[in-house]
């Protein structure tokens, strides 16, 4: 009988773990929604940080994340294409594949330090370019790995059919293989965008922060996440409220993009 009881206990504990996991998700989302919604006013969206709003922060955070995406998507996709279509099976490709996986898990704060040494220290001022570069470095390995995995799902017969028609290699890749993997890659891009839009550590000493509205990437650049970190630790109630409002908005953005990514893939399957 002993083993049956043990079985029951283990199954119960497993179920309990899942309940705990879900419990924390709801606890976090509930407090965040409550604090966030009660702290959001119309002015939150129309004013800049200096006047108690987050307009400039949202614009700044999106600008840097989009710029990172414009660099990371072509570079990451091309690298993924190399790994799967050109270098497939070669020693070099497998080394690069592993290094890119390692880079994906590199501590984000270290990437911040690296970009600081490269793009902030020599120019003597924090700047938006540095922030965008730090985010791009975080994003590239994710795009490489998605592209690589999604191209692997495309049947070899499709490539062979292209070759039989006399297509050149790069035409086959662009017009047949990548097209067939389009949905998966799009999902990967959305998920990685959701990941970098919420990053703080790589921006702390690259873009730093700016209280005012600016589009000048050569200057300190407004960041939503860095502002949350600063505001949350200020003692006054107004700053904390703004931090909650900003956190709520950020989480909604991240979760929406995330669900959108999953929705895209489900619809096309």
């Amino acid at each position: 009988m002993n083993r049956l009881i043990l079985n029951k206990i283990i199954l119960l504990l497993s179920t309990l773990s899942a309940v705990i996991g879900i419990g924390f998700l709801f606890w976090i989302l509930a407090t965040l929604s409550y604090k966030g919604i009660t702290s959001i006013h119309w002015a939150t969206f129309t004013k800049d940080l200096v006047d108690g709003g987050i307009r400039n922060l949202l614009v700044g955070q999106f600008t840097m994340a989009l710029m990172a995406t414009f660099v990371a998507v072509p570079v990451g996709m091309m690298a993924g294409i190399y790994l799967r279509e050109y270098g497939h099976g070669s020693k070099l490709a497998s080394i690069i594949r592993n290094l890119s996986d390692v880079m994906m898990s590199a501590p984000s704060i270290v990437i911040g330090v690296f970009v600081y040494a490269l793009l902030v220290d020599p120019f003597g001022s924090y700047n938006g370019w540095a922030g965008a570069v730090a985010l791009a470095i975080m994003m590239i390995p994710i795009i490489i790995s998605t592209t690589d995995n999604m191209l692997a799902l495309v049947p070899t017969e499709l490539r062979e059919a292209g070759m039989a028609l006399g297509g050149s290699k790069h035409k086959i890749i662009l017009q047949i293989v990548v097209r067939a993997a389009k949905v998966g890659i799009t999902t990967g891009i959305l998920l990685s965008f959701a990941r970098i839009i919420g990053e703080t550590a790589p921006l702390l000493f690259t873009s730093a922060n700016n209280q005012f509205f600016t589009m000048d990437l050569g200057d300190q650049f407004p960041s939503l996440t860095v502002s949350i970190y600063n505001l949350a630790t200020y003692p006054d109630e107004a700053s904390r409220e703004l931090a909650w409002a900003a956190s709520f908005i950020l989480t909604m953005i991240v979760l929406t993009i995330n669900l959108l990514g999953r929705f895209v893939i489900r619809n096309k399957k």
Partner: peptide, 26 residues
């Protein structure tokens, strides 16, 4: 085709250079 291939090769080696670059700079 050649250009495309070279660009994809360059992109692939970039992650290697970034990792080495991080180590070297630190």
């Amino acid at each position: 085709g050649k250009l495309f291939r070279n660009f994809s090769f360059f992109s692939a080696t970039l992650s290697f250079f970034i990792l080495v670059g991080i180590f070297a700079i630190l």
